[in-house]
């Protein structure tokens, strides 16, 4: 959920003017925000599953350190979505295990 009004930061300035695609589903995003933010705003919490046990992982450290938030972005696997900004028409996929290169 987006925080539209904030007692210190005021009203939300950015506007969700672009669309990205997540597992075939279109969601809106604010230019410049991180992929993980657009996903969480759309209620998506599971970003990938682990290689060995297939356990779900999502946003954890927010600074590119833990690799929990990795997804396949525009056919490139293991992109850290917490430090990668969205761009118009980006195609994002939930990543299973190591994912695979499709370029």
């Amino acid at each position: 959920m987006r925080i539209k009004v904030h007692p210190v930061l005021g009203p939300l300035k950015g506007k969700a003017t672009i669309e990205i695609e997540v597992d075939g589903r279109r969601i809106s995003a604010i230019p410049g925000e991180m992929i993980s933010s657009a996903l969480i705003a759309a209620g998506i919490k599971v970003f990938r599953t682990t290689h060995k046990k297939g356990e779900p992982r999502g946003y954890f450290c927010g600074i590119g350190q833990c690799t929990d938030c990795m997804m396949t972005v525009d056919n490139i696997p293991s992109v850290r979505t917490c430090i990668t900004p969205v761009s118009k028409g980006m195609k994002i996929k939930t990543q299973y295990g190591h994912g695979k290169w499709e370029v």
């Binding site: 925080i3 904030h6 933010s37 946003y59 954890f60 927010g62």
Partner: peptide, 23 residues
């Protein structure tokens, strides 16, 4: 602790104050 929804406090702070998203 590895379930989505568990996160660093600083990670949550980045979401709310920088990205304006409620975790």
């Amino acid at each position: 602790w590895t379930l989505p929804g568990v996160m660093g406090a600083g990670a949550a702070q980045t979401l709310i104050n920088l990205q304006r998203i409620l975790p």
